[in-house]
């Protein structure tokens, strides 16, 4: 923070007093932990340098594949639900709009673990759905401890993170552009494809990131709704820290996961930038 930045003049609003707390915060809670992860990943129990932990990753390739698959599915489902919802919400009158955004926000005030746990009582064999089905003579369905239940848990928990950024992007839509499209004879579908979709793309990218990343690394949902039988990569990492006490392996899997997520986001942003001329999409 010394006066070495002659080449890069400070931004107009730069104020060291205001920025210091954030700088300190990010160094202590972001930079240092990242270095610790990297340190553990490349050392063994005695602290000597080793690549053995990183080379273990192929062992978890299948698990990683499953995590990726479930997360992609959950993200797509979230997108399909969230996009139209965000569009209609942005066009609502103030009252219903506030109401709806409250309905989306309020469940997030509750703890994530409790929200997930409550799905057990809904999906269980003796749970709410199966009890109701039993009343009309449909035998108990296997709902819980299935891949479907895990994906449902992901969609349920992370849906608001998809809706809100898209909704924000939609709010900023310039309605005169939509009118212009109408005036120039675009069909509603054309208008959606050529105007609304490109303009809301930053929100979509942001939403995909905010849903996909936590889905890939989640561990609690799969344990509770998958019965602890389907392991996701997050479960493997959690196991290294919580029960196997193998911090080095846990850190190395986290590191590889981080790198893979970064690569996939970079690829996604690359394509997004092509669509979005302004390049305003936010990243990560």
């Amino acid at each position: 923070m010394k006066n070495t930045s002659v080449k890069n003049p400070k931004p107009k609003n730069y104020n060291p007093i205001i920025c210091t707390p954030y700088t300190v915060w990010s160094v202590i809670f972001i930079i240092v932990p990242l270095f610790m992860v990297a340190y553990y990943a490349f050392t063994d129990k005695t602290g000597a340098f080793t690549l053995a932990n990183i080379l273990e990753f192929p062992r978890y390739a299948k698990t990683f594949g499953i995590s990726l698959l479930y997360s992609v599915e959950a993200t797509i489902i979230c997108l399909i639900i969230a996009y139209p919802l965000a569009y209609f919400m942005s066009n609502m009158k103030a009252g219903p709009k506030r109401m709806l955004s409250m309905l989306i926000m309020v469940p997030m005030w509750m703890n994530f673990l409790i929200r997930t746990y409550s799905w057990i009582t809904i999906l269980a064999r003796t749970g709410i759905i199966n009890t109701l089905l039993g009343k009309i003579g449909i035998g108990p369905l296997k709902l819980i401890n299935t891949p479907g239940a895990i994906i449902l848990g992901m969609v349920y928990n992370f849906l608001p993170y998809m809706i809100l950024p898209i909704y924000t992007a939609m709010l900023k839509l310039d309605h005169s552009l939509l009118e212009a499209a109408d005036d120039l004879g675009a069909s509603p579908f054309m208008r959606l494809r050529k105007v609304i979709l490109p303009l809301s793309m930053p929100g979509v990218i942001s939403g995909i990131t905010m849903v996909f990343v936590p889905c890939v690394s989640t561990f609690y949902i799969s344990q509770k709704l998958g019965g602890g039988k389907t392991m996701l990569i997050g479960d493997v990492i959690e196991m290294q820290f919580q029960s196997a006490y193998n911090y080095n392996l846990g850190a190395s899997i986290s590191l590889v996961l981080m790198v893979l997520i970064l690569i996939s986001l970079a690829v996604m942003n690359h394509f997004a930038d092509k669509d979005d001329e302004e390049g305003g999409g936010l990243i990560i």
Partner: peptide, 21 residues
Amino acid sequence: QKTILQSYVMDEIFQKMEDGE
């Protein structure tokens, strides 16, 4: 055993056994 197992659990055993799950 895993092929016929319902789930691996710890404290949830209470709820699952009490409910007949």
